[in-house]
Design a protein around this nucleic acid. Structure first.
Length: 326
DNA sequence: AAGATTTGACCCTG
DNA sequence: CAGGGTCAAATCTT
């Protein structure tokens, strides 16, 4: 199971990234040193008063934080640029109208349409670009969201058809999230799931009241998955949800005889929280999602306030997250 | 009966 | 124009 982070980085860029990572790590060390010494001084009254020490450490730490931020942003830019080059299905760094919008030749071809079919002009809106990330996995793991299949296509040069899913709540809640799943290997089975867009829905019907309480349901899982990260919601990434997915047909078709996989799929949501393997996936996917969100935030493709509020771009998050990736 | 899946056609992008 | 993404009627499942 892996994320489609570019695996074939040119060595020069790899080195650049390594350098940045090293610099960032050093800055990180400096920061911990600073905070350590500040803490020591706080416990030690032999020197000047604590307020003075704090006042000295605070600006220094600010600087360190800025340095770290700079490193992290550079890494983000580098990596995202690479991702765009390597994979078309990787997160796009700009997003046009979410709903695309009809072409200009809207009304001119009225008569040319066949009358045997319903006139669907205007109803078809393809997303030109959207935030996307992929996941590859030997089985079709539950991502916690309710998906409804809306299409299947044979893809050129692909052994297996691609299955298209949209969020079940597309119509009742206007959730724009979609995904497609394609089997890329037969033996051993391997599936590539590409997630497009963010869930803006609230999975009310599926969420136990326990989770609906006061805090977002994802909080616990996020904290478990990301350790020090400060992501606060799963809404922008289906993998963060601890809830059961409701895809049925997909599994029946793709894994007709593999009982272990089916058992996996139907296993309780707690699997997500305890399996180290999946935790890694969460980290990778969370990273991708955050990456996309970071770089898309200024292009007007904010789907909802929900999504915007889904990620806390604190220094800690970015720093810790990146340390997983490089 | 309601909701999900299947499937062929439509539409968009490169 | 080809390939891929989406729609929606028909069909299936619960």
């Amino acid at each position: 199971m892996e994320c489609t982070w570019p695996e074939s980085l040119p060595s020069s860029k790899k080195k650049a990234i390594e350098e940045l990572v090293e610099g960032r790590d050093i800055a990180n060390q400096l920061r911990s040193l600073l905070s350590k010494s500040a803490g020591d001084n706080n416990n030690n009254n032999n020197n000047n008063n604590n307020n003075n020490n704090k006042n000295m450490a605070a600006p220094a730490e600010d600087l360190v934080v800025k340095i770290l931020k700079s490193f992290t942003n550079s890494l983000l830019i580098l990596k995202n640029a690479e991702a765009d080059e390597v994979s078309q299905i990787q997160a796009n760094t700009h997003v046009t109208n979410w709903n695309g919008g009809p072409k200009s030749s809207e009304s001119s071809e009225e008569s040319s349409r066949s009358t045997t079919h319903k006139d669907r002009r205007g109803c078809y809106k393809r997303r030109k670009t959207a935030q996307s990330w992929t996941k590859e996995s030997p089985n079709l793991t539950d991502d916690g969201h309710a998906w409804r299949k809306y299409g299947q296509k044979v893809i050129l040069n692909a052994k297996f058809p691609r299955h298209y899913y949209r969020c079940t709540h597309k119509h009742d809640q206007g959730c724009q999230a979609t995904k497609h799943v394609q089997r890329i290997h037969d033996d051993p089975p391997k599936y590539r799931s590409t997630y497009i867009g963010h869930h803006t829905c609230r999975n009310f019907l599926k969420v136990p009241e326990l989770f609906l309480d006061s805090s977002p349901p994802s909080d616990s899982s996020m904290l478990l998955s990301f350790d020090n990260s400060t992501i606060t919601s799963k809404e922008d990434n289906p993998f963060f949800s601890p809830f059961q997915s409701s895809i049925k047909q997909e599994y029946k078709e793709e894994i007709p005889s593999d009982h272990t996989d089916i058992a996996h799929i139907q296993s309780s949501s707690s699997d997500y929280l305890v399996s180290p393997d999946r935790t890694v996936a969460f980290e990778s996917l969370g990273h991708m999602s955050v990456l996309s969100s970071t770089l898309d935030s200024d292009n007007g493709d904010v789907i909802s306030g929900d999504m915007m509020g889904s990620v806390d771009f604190s220094d800690d998050f970015l720093i810790d997250d990146f340390s997983l990736q490089v």
